[in-house]
Write a protein that binds this DNA or RNA. Sequence first.
DNA 1: AAAGGTAGCAACCGCTCGATT
DNA 2: AAATCGAGCGGTTGCTACCTT
Length: 302
Amino acid sequence: MGRPPCCDKVGIKKGPWTPEEDIILVSYIQEHGPGNWRSVPTSTGLLRCSKSCRLRWTNYLRPGIKRGNFTPHEEGMIIHLQALLGNKWAAIASYLPQRTDNDIKNYWNTHLKKKIKKLQSAFEPQFASSDSSSYQYSSKSSSDKICNNLDPSTHGSSLRLNQAAPTYASSTENISRLLEGWMRSSSSPKMNASKLHQNSSFDSSIGSSAVTAPLCHGPMKAEQEAGGGGNLASNEELESILSAENMNGGLGWERQAAAAIDDEKKRRSETHHEPPLAFLENWLLGESGGQVEEILELPPLF
DNA sequence: AAAGGTAGCAACCGCTCGATT
DNA sequence: AAATCGAGCGGTTGCTACCTT
């Protein structure tokens, strides 16, 4: 069945959003809450299509979004998750609650993909023929090498890893102040998202956003998105993985992760199944079990 | 100082899916 | 059952700032 475009494209403005448009959009959402995007252009007078309004909100204006440099730990998480999930940016974003899938995707394409390719060719000649867009661990030692060498502080990368935030972002920070009322109640991202989620006027969009997914639905949402249910391991497999992981008690977080990766590699080589994401969830989250602020405070893996 | 090249990122495009009418 | 809508997703594009020559 054919579906008409979200807008008739006549008289629709495209390109970068101006601060004035942002203010109009934020003001409208403050009053009505996000959702019913189709009515936003007509209600606000914005010459934008509904989809553009929604994207602007979810990728840029929505409260709780962290902008600017990615931390080494965030880099590490993205690399690990991309290795296991592939280009499932929304699923990856669900583990990095302050980042949008678009941000992560851009960061991967512009920074990490090159970085990994470079390291692959430098440390593992056998990597050279592989596609860096789907980086896989070939061995614990190689992953360790990569891990160690991804730390921007330990190698003189010419990449502009710490580029300042765009100047436009600073102008939208003013707009973000409009949202202070939402944010003031708590300084914790989890609390912010939770409180927002509790706010009935925002339930519809915030509750369904990828960024808040682990807060509202737990990482299983990412699991469902990435695996679609079809790639999940059986209960028996999960139990064996989890019990094997429990035997690693007392190891450091990084060693546990490496050990878990090793175990999973072995399991995958034996079963040729896709990774059960509960395994990933388990070693990423450890005991925190979805507590995002704890994830973010984990020691840098890279 | 100027021109050309490059990198980074915001935004768009096209598609799918689930819910609703 | 079909049509429509809202939302989500991944890939791609185009603008702009920065870098190099």
